[in-house]
Design a protein around this nucleic acid. Structure first.
Lengths: 251, 251
DNA sequence: AATTGTGATTTGGTATGCCAATTTTGCTGT
DNA sequence: ACAGCAAAATTGGCATACCAAATCACAATT
């Protein structure tokens, strides 16, 4: 037999992860502030009915995630609020419309922020991405990737780490949502791709002119167009999106 | 003794981290491809002359970083190349100026977004927070908390989960940064509190008028004032902030 | 020769115990 | 009272030992 069959079937999640997640929730439920001391490893061990080794591994996980800081002989201390990580799970099932609304606000600001300080290299990079988008009309596989690159490259042009982080976070939110995949599948079939390509061009033109308000408007209009597309699609896909798409009266 | 002095001096880096980094280098130096099996924990333990426990902890670190995948009874496998470890720069050590810049952009958009849809209850809540801020001129302990409530309540008024999440995240970023604590300590002494209180009032006025652009401007100006305060303080605190505060040419 | 079953081996999973750094306690001397 | 120091308690660091799942080797069977 030449074919090596699939071994290693999906494994149950490692215990230390479950414990780590439980500890996160405990912290989130409590009134603990950043800098406060956590219960000791031994306390958690008894609480969860496992050995200290496992709790220690869970602590290492939280330490890698920069949620806590561990000090020998002293204890472990809350370094960052777990809310920043905890809410992300909850946020993974926000509606596409709600997410687009937020992106419209924030990304247009980011575009305006980038315009005055964007470098020649950044502009070239955006042009390159645009070329790729123009070329691969059929190769839709990477269309989403290029789209992401375009938006995030603008964020990077602001040279502000926080804005890059925020934009990345917003963009990745849709990955957790199966609804987006359906949308993308639909959209690929249509001519909306051309519309968005033109939108991207307009944004780039404003960035080249170092026109902050122009860039803001262009980005705003771009995402507005995406919203409109979404709106139209929701007509034909009504059963799927019903009660899900329009959670927000906003806009 | 009422004052709790600072204990917990800086600690030497934890051993499992060193081992984890060493393993990363070993992988990088080798010709290992993604999917290949790594040497076992026992092998590394003997190689580094430590117990398997430490190697295991290092493996957990690599697993959290999504570099490897661990399978019971089988072994550990390379999941991503160590070079692809270019994750987002850890936001915990972002400079105050950079963070304020991002907040100025995003929170002013949020204020504009909230203005048209804010409810009477939200307005009342903001008024209550303002009253608290006005009252507790001396009780500076909760000043930061009230400040946070004010800003985040505006985000909640947008009724957009994503915006609430984003604002919360931005606000919590400063908790990880010791520099902010120093700033707050300084600021409490000054009369800047009155300035910011007045700023908050102006924002609320615009929100009451349902004036989106007015709210945007008011919030922008508020954070601009905070930035100016920070700037002034950086003069007197120069040694502490040098090379840290002005990482961004932006603004 | 191919397949299958079973036991040995490999490999990660978990628990227990002791060590070292830190913090707290409390005694002692001034 | 107070300061200083030392012993004791606390807490994380690390190692050893044993458990369980997966894999492998090989003989029995077809």
């Amino acid at each position: 037999m030449a074919i090596k069959v699939i071994k290693n079937p999906p494994m149950a999640e490692r215990l230390y992860r479950e414990i780590g997640e439980s500890i996160k929730q405990e912290i989130a439920k409590s009134t603990m502030k950043v800098g406060d001391k956590l219960p000791t490893e031994r306390v958690y061990a008894e609480l969860f009915g496992v050995s200290r080794t496992l709790v220690r591994e869970a602590f290492i996980m939280l330490e890698i995630e920069e949620l806590i800081e561990v000090r020998k002989g002293s204890g472990s201390y809350l370094k960052n609020s777990p809310s920043s990580l905890l809410t992300i799970a909850h946020v993974s099932d926000v509606g596409p419309f709600e997410l687009l609304q937020a992106r419209q606000e924030i990304e247009s600001s980011i575009a305006a922020c980038a315009a005055p300080v964007i470098t020649k290299q950044d502009l070239q990079k955006l042009q390159d991405i645009l070329d790729i988008e123009s070329a691969e009309l059929e190769v839709v596989e990477n269309a989403n990737s290029a789209d992401r690159d375009f938006h995030l490259s603008i964020a990077q042009a602001t040279q502000n780490t926080v804005l890059v982080d925020t934009a990345t976070r917003l963009w990745d939110m849709k990955d957790g949502n199966p609804m987006w995949k359906k949308l993308h599948a639909r959209i690929q079939d249509t001519s909306y791709h051309d519309q968005w390509l033109e939108d991207h061009r307009k944004v780039l033109v404003q960035l080249r002119k170092r026109n902050a308000e122009g860039a803001r408007q262009a980005m705003w209009q771009h995402i507005e167009n995406v919203k409109q597309t979404l709106f139209k699609l929701s007509d034909t896909e009504a059963p799927d999106f019903d009660g899900y798409l329009f959670a927000q009266p906003h806009g």
